[in-house]
Write a protein that binds this DNA or RNA. Structure first.
Lengths: 172, 172
DNA sequence: GTCTATATTCTGATAGAC
DNA sequence: GTCTATCAGAATATAGAC
């Protein structure tokens, strides 16, 4: 049986949670350590500085994104539908990592290459299934829009149903 | 002839610029004052504290959004096309205010009512023109997606053209 | 591996001169 | 209206005990 989450994992969980709930300005070492139930010194043992904490979050996103891409290309319902469902779901590890990354990305001097690479790979998967650059692009934008609302903290009822209806009109 | 921008306006410009370029954590009173070419004390004369600076930004967004809604409903090319063009344009006063507001919204305990109200009004205008809730919703999501990419600092070539093509397929 | 104590720098804000 | 000087509190990070 798997061990309970390691302190390192709990620290990353707490970091993402504070980012999601209160934004990057609230995500101080103190706040993250408290949310994870350890002291600041305890946090700094696992992540020697704040940049290391952010790098740890990016690495987690990269791994989750890679797994998601594999699931997307293998999905029996098709990559496009999988992508839309995935973009509306909330609370999953990938969603949380994506929202946290979006809140960190604003201060990245260079563009966040993890996010950029993931977006490019998702587009490629959509294009492979749909065979239509305009449609693939628009599906991705709809998914981005759903994330925009999630990042902004808005609810957006019916988005998935409406997106599916438009997709079926365009394919049919 | 109109006067040069007042110091108050230059401070709001600088605030938005720092938010867009470096994110909310970098938007300190010091950084904003320096970007506007005044001292911190000078800034605090116009905005007695940071909350007042943020309130000033929200008020600017509200006024620009109101003007945009009037232009959108009166646009000869139609509200939907106006909305899509508007969502891709960058550098305009409204775009800058929207991106800055998105970067401030993450730390708002309650949802940002200015952003929420604007989104509701834009949806209403889209629905009035298109008469189709699913289509109006998806067009708004595509616009949101374009903003998501702008907020994340990504370029997204061809988004407008692709969105227009899909829109014309759905209308035709 | 985790904690407490401490050093250092940054941030928001006040007071008062000009 | 704008500036400089200054302060209190917060944020990152280090050192060393346990």
């Amino acid at each position: 049986m798997p061990d309970a989450a390691s302190t390192r994992d709990r620290l990353l969980d707490a970091f993402e949670q504070v980012l999601i709930d209160h934004g990057s300005r609230a995500a101080t070492l103190d706040a993250v350590a408290a949310a994870a139930g350890v002291s600041k010194g305890g946090l700094l043992y696992h992540f020697p500085n704040k940049a290391a904490l952010e790098a740890g979050q990016r690495e987690r996103l990269r791994a989750l994104g890679e797994a998601d891409l594999a699931a997307m290309t293998a999905a029996p319902e098709g990559a496009a539908d999988y992508y839309l469902v995935e973009s509306t779901s909330s609370g999953g590890a990938l969603d949380r990592a994506l929202i946290a990354a979006a809140r960190l990305s604003e201060e990245a001097g260079e563009h966040d290459s993890v996010l950029d690479d993931l977006r490019a790979a998702w587009y490629h998967a959509l294009l492979t299934e749909l065979g239509d650059p305009a449609l693939a692009h628009v599906i991705q934008l709809v998914g981005d829009g759903m994330y925009y609302n999630a990042v902004a903290g808005s609810r957006d009822e019916g988005a998935l149903e409406h997106a599916r209806e438009i997709l079926s009109r365009l394919r049919g």
